[in-house]
Each structure stands twice: as structure tokens, then as C-alpha cells.
Design a protein around this nucleic acid. Structure first.
Lengths: 138, 138
DNA sequence: ATTGACGTTGACGTTAACGTCAATTATCAT
DNA sequence: ATGATAATTGACGTTAACGTCAACGTCAAT
């Protein structure tokens, strides 16, 4: 037998749970929790979880979803849109509907964010001005 | 004495808690909770809460903050930036710092949202195309 | 005086998204 | 073989943001 080391053949692109945790600045607990919620389905090497770049990608999407303010179940729905789920015509219509609903929410959110940003920028300007004014010129 | 009806003089611009609740599609419980968290400070007519347009404005800001994904304490900090809080130079620097931190978060969030929107729009296009394709032309 | 409709204050319940142990198991270097 | 190190599975704790329910006050209309 001339295998390099038994089972491990080629793909070196795997991650342990703590590697991912470190990379994304979260805890292993959180990652396991996402799995509990069916947002991740890592492989197993015996009992240990093995994450592939596919899983890493999904984790990235999960975290982006969180930053956007989505709940984990929201994120679950969105992730479902990405995998080979091209079902019946009815399913497609449903998916399309949900996507559009979410788009509406996102656009509203974007609008809100733009407003808050504008106000905060304005506030910062005013404070800066005020501070310049009251600066005792040396 | 020729008063119109004792204490009530001119300002007709007040709201009851359930009026506000109805207008904004939330519950009175929520509004009272915001008060508990010092996000609102309505007047009182005896024991009953009386909201002025100022309070209504703050409530609007609170709800926008929520849509953006802020926690109530985040929102509290942001509201604090709006009232006559023009304190010492030190305070101003602090406020300015916090505002800029929050701006950074908001810009990141805006970025994330734009990405998700783009992907979802793309997904919708693909689904639409697919559905047109499989449409049996009548 | 009574009946609703609305308002008030507790106080406890609930859900989401993990944190925080504890008890085990596997791995790896010494 | 032996710790040290990292991983696993429960199980219970925690925080935020209200929901829900009970018990009570109030005010206008009947």
C-alpha cells in the first residue's frame, strides 16, 4: 500500500471548530448552536466535527445575516434559497414571494440606516464645529 | 372665572398611550416598557400618561432604531445625543467618539445590506427566468 | 349605581441566542 | 503511560424585549 497516510487523501481544506471560531471571532458554542438550528451540517471524523470551505462559506453568510439583524431562523430561510432546492413550480413561486418580501424589508432597513447615518454625520459636524469654536486659540 | 374648562388651556396635541400604540402598530405594554428603560418621559394627568408630539417623535426614533437592529440601550445612547446635553469639552469628545463608532457600525451594516440585496435580486431574476423557461406557452 | 372601555401597576412567563459549567473522550507530545 | 490540550454532549443559567394575567382605579354614559 502506498497511500500517504491511510484515509486522508487530498483535500487539505478542512477546519476544526476552534479554528473557525478564532477566525470569525465567535465561540465554538455558537457554531454548535448554529448546527443545532440546522444552519450548518459539518462532516464528522469519528466524533469530531470537520468543516469544509462550504461550511465556512455558510458560516460567513450566517454572520453577515446577523450583522444585518436577521434572526437565525430568518437566516435559515435565506440559506435554503441557496442550495439545490429547485423544486416544483409552486415551490418556486413561494421562494420568489419570500425573497421579495425580504427584499422589501431590506430596502426599508437600508432607508432607515441612511437616515440615521445622515443624522449622525450631521451631529458629528455640529459637535466638531462647536469644539472648534470654543477652542482657546493658543 | 372665565377659563374654558379649568386646567386644559390650549395645546390639543396630546396622545393617549393606546393612540400611539395603534398609530405605530405596537402595544401599550411596549410603550410602557420603553418608559421603564428611560427612552420616554411622558407627562401625567393624574395617573394617566399624556404624550406630547415630542414624545411621539422620540417613539418614532425608537422604532426606527429597532428596525435598524439597535438594542434599546443603544437607542437610549443615540437619543441622548439629541437632547440639550451640550456638556463639557470632555463630554463632547466622548459623544463624538461614540457617534463615530456607531457610524462605523452603520456603514458596515449598510454594506452588508447592499450585498444581501444584490444577491437576493439576483436570485429572484434567476427564478423568474427559470419559471418563464418552463412556462408552457399557451 | 352599574356597566364598559380604557388606564395603571406589579409580577410572572416566554423566546432567542447563546454562556457557562460538568463530566467524558480523543489526541498528542513527552 | 501520562498529563496537557482540544473536542464532545448534556444541562442549566442569562439577557433582552416584551407578552400575559391579575387586581385595581376612573370616568362617561346609561
Amino acid at each position: 500500500m502506498s497511500g500517504p497516510k491511510e484515509a486522508q487523501q487530498a483535500a487539505e481544506l478542512t477546519y476544526t471548530i476552534s479554528e473557525l471560531a478564532a477566525e470569525f471571532g465567535i465561540t465554538a458554542r455558537a457554531i454548535r448552536f448554529y448546527e443545532d438550528q440546522d444552519l450548518l451540517q459539518p462532516e464528522r471524523d469519528g466524533i469530531k466535527r470537520v468543516y469544509l470551505r462550504r461550511d465556512r462559506g455558510r458560516l460567513k453568510l450566517i454572520l453577515r445575516g446577523k450583522r444585518v439583524g436577521f434572526s437565525l431562523s430568518d437566516i435559515g430561510e435565506m440559506l435554503a434559497l441557496y442550495d439545490p432546492n429547485n423544486e416544483s413550480r409552486e415551490q418556486l413561486k413561494l421562494t420568489l414571494g419570500k425573497s421579495r418580501d425580504r427584499l422589501a424589508i431590506l430596502r426599508r432597513q437600508r432607508q432607515d440606516i441612511d437616515e440615521v447615518i445622515a443624522e449622525l454625520e450631521d451631529g458629528c459636524r455640529q459637535i466638531s464645529d462647536l469644539m472648534e469654536t470654543q477652542t482657546e486659540t493658543s
